[in-house]
Simulated assay, not measured.
Amino acid sequence: MMADLARTDVSVPEGHLAVWSNHRPGRPLVLLHGGGLDHRMWEQQVTAFADTQRVVLVDARGHGESSTATAAYRHCDDLAAVFHALDLGPATVVGLSMGGGTAVDLALEHPDLVAGLVVSGVGTSEPTFTDPWVLDAFAEWKAAEETRDAQRWLDAFMRFLPGPRRTLDDVDPNVAEAVRRMGWDTLQHHAVRSFVPPTPVTRTWERVPSIEVPVVVVSGVLDSPDHVGMGHRLADSVPDGRTVDIEGTAHYPNLEEPAAFNDAVALVASRAA
């Protein structure tokens, strides 16, 4: 199914975004990958939805086949450029982790483009972490970046797949290999010293009550308490929010439990249609 999607490059200031889509009529379903990953993480969702509706996959700047950032930008503004270039109109936007933060930012900064949200593994793009396991994982990740130790970076990155209560041995090896491959490709293509991080969107938690579209927050039960807690907080903070907690998975429920994840997506997509 992924091979049936057409590739388009959308120009953004000082770069481009790689976008894949089909040409089904109706409300678009836009899928935003997590940090360090790329559009390939959505293969199971493309298989589930591409026969019945328009599906759009976007590689964020600094990921996949999009350009590496060399000037100031915001992910949500890049995404708005994709909407305008492809004439997407209001869409159901699905985002995981970094992509979930971007989805919420889009609803705050460009609300006319969003008909519904599915957010997983995050609350907003302004996370707060207090759990010792998360703090240790991020500290290891940062140390690897500072020493430019690629293997150490990848090992730290992979900790989020099983989460704090499992090891990689507990994860389907095909899923682990897919995540590892995407993380490695991110390093190989975008880990340059001139990389510019995105400009943050601010006051997100203060403003999320203004989001009027349906919001479903999907959490892997085995994810860290911080990630699950921020997701639940988002659902509680919007007028039309609900939570879906999925057993047997941590930070990447779309990869480990795709059927349950797809059910949550369909719930929002049907209401946004």
Rank of each mutant, 00 (worst) to 15 (best):
D236M: 12
M230Q: 15
A143Q: 13
P198E: 09
K142M: 11
L161D: 04
V114S: 07
V171W: 06
E145S: 09
Q151V: 15
A176P: 06
G163A: 06
G123Y: 07
D240E: 12
A144L: 04
A178P: 03
E146T: 13
R207N: 08
L154W: 07
E145Y: 08
V179I: 11
I211G: 06
I211P: 00
L161K: 04
H190A: 05
E206N: 09
W133V: 00
A178M: 09
V213P: 05
V217N: 02
S224C: 06
A178H: 05
P164R: 07
Q151Y: 10
W133E: 00
V213H: 01
A191Y: 11
V215G: 01
T128E: 15
V119H: 01
V119P: 00
D155M: 07
T128Q: 14
S219Q: 08
T124M: 05
V213L: 01
P197A: 10
M182K: 09
V196D: 02
E212Y: 01
G220P: 00
R181M: 14
V208E: 02
A144I: 04
V217W: 01
P162I: 07
P225R: 05
R193H: 14
A191I: 02
P214N: 03
W184A: 14
S120C: 13
T202N: 13
V175R: 00
S125L: 10
S219I: 08
R181G: 13
T199Q: 14
P162D: 05
R180S: 10
V228Q: 03
V171R: 07
L135F: 04
L234F: 05
V114G: 07
V119M: 06
A150P: 08
R159G: 02
A150L: 14
R193P: 11
P209H: 05
E126H: 13
M230H: 11
V218S: 01
A150Q: 14
R181Y: 09
E177W: 05
P209Q: 04
S210D: 15
P132R: 01
A235M: 03
L161P: 02
P132C: 10
P162T: 02
E140Q: 13
R193C: 07
E146K: 11
V228M: 03
S210T: 15
G220E: 03
